[in-house]
């Protein structure tokens, strides 16, 4: 009987592991995307985010096949506009896969600028800017940001050395990457790596 008990115990763990992994059916990652954030500053404080998305090789080839109409392995103005229209603009419903919080308050991404697309090392790279003005004061302001696909169709992860800053010389900056369980998504199964930036005016 002890052997039976051990086997049953193991089987129980396996069964629960299976059910646990499977409870959200038909939605595991089929595409992979790595992202970078460049925090943009102006004289007043934060002015926005320059976001870079880099897709995996296979998905990139599918996009190239679909949208590189003249087959020159670059994306012309018209081809970029077509991609934006057919495969990007609808992401406004998902805040362009971006979760941004300013001092704990959610910032909805309704506008993006400077959308561009290029092929680099056989992978497709999107770049765009999210305007977001946060005035710097003498007390710190806290910005939290991460990219994610709530449906987990795309596995989104932050690129190594994925955080950078522009025109930040006038400000005191403190940055860290944290796993914040409160921001877990996809049925609370995935805890994201969150870019946490605290900044204030240099005294």
């Amino acid at each position: 009987m002890p052997i039976l008990k051990i086997q049953l115990h193991k089987l129980t763990i396996i069964i629960f592991s299976l059910l646990f992994f499977s409870y959200s059916v038909f939605a595991h990652p089929h595409t992979f995307m790595k992202y970078k954030i460049n925090y943009l500053f102006d004289a007043e404080g934060l002015s926005g985010f320059k976001v870079t998305w880099e897709f995996d090789d296979m998905f990139s080839m599918v996009m190239l096949q679909d949208y590189d109409i003249n087959k020159d392995r670059t994306f012309s103005k018209d081809e970029t506009a077509l991609i934006k229209k057919e495969a990007f603009d609808h992401l406004i419903e998902y805040n362009y896969f971006s979760k941004i919080l300013i001092n704990g308050q959610i910032f909805n991404v309704n506008v993006i600028n400077d959308f561009s697309i290029k092929l680099a090392n056989e992978v497709i790279v999107y770049k765009f800017t999210i305007p977001c003005h946060v005035k710097a004061l003498s007390s710190p302001k806290k910005i939290e940001m991460f990219a994610y696909d709530p449906s987990y169709f795309i596995d989104v992860s932050m690129q190594d050395q994925g955080i950078s800053y522009s025109n930040h010389d006038n400000f005191e900056i403190n940055h860290s990457i944290k796993n914040i369980p409160g921001y877990a998504y996809y049925h609370k199964q995935i805890i994201p790596n969150v870019s946490v930036l605290n900044f204030r005016k240099k005294s």
Binding site: F21, D155, P181
Partner: peptide
């Protein structure tokens, strides 16, 4: 959630690595 995060991250990294090798 922490276990599932680690598990899903491992799974996706393995898949990405295998897929890149195929391509």
């Amino acid at each position: 959630a922490s276990y599932s995060t680690v598990a899903l991250r491992n799974l996706s990294q393995m898949q990405l690595k295998l897929r890149n090798r195929i391509s």
